[in-house]
């Protein structure tokens, strides 16, 4: 395999793992539900994009890569829908977000 692609893949994997963990830490650190949503989406967007991109680079040009890209696409589609549905359910259930101002 091309050594450059391999190095790039490893860089993607390491930084992807970093963002996955950062998102999880954010979910612990953030003070209330609505702010945690933002932290979770760090894992769900950049974390998964980088991890899957690293794997695609390792797999090369094959059907495995196509499946990986499908996984990524579906994660992005469904996670943002789920986050929206969850935020909506919370609003509906009467959990009011804390905000800094009242405008």
């Amino acid at each position: 395999m091309n050594i450059l692609a391999e190095l790039l893949a490893y860089a993607c994997l390491v930084s992807g793992a970093f963002f996955v963990i950062v998102g999880a830490i954010g979910v612990i650190r953030m003070p209330e539900f609505y702010t945690r949503l933002h932290a979770a989406s760090v894992t769900e967007t950049l974390g998964s994009i980088l991890v899957i991109a690293g794997l695609v680079l390792l797999a090369g040009f094959s059907l495995v890569s196509v499946k990986l890209l499908m996984v990524l696409l579906f994660i992005l589609f469904t996670s943002c829908t789920a986050v929206h549905a969850l935020a909506k359910a919370a609003i509906h259930g009467g959990l009011m977000p804390e905000t800094d101002d009242d405008d």
């Binding site: 579906f74 589609f77 469904t78 829908t81 929206h84 549905a85």
Partner: peptide
């Protein structure tokens, strides 16, 4: 709205 449109996309898949 969002659920409706995304469901339309996802169900055949």
């Amino acid at each position: 709205l969002i659920l409706r449109v995304i469901a339309k996309l996802m169900i055949p898949l």
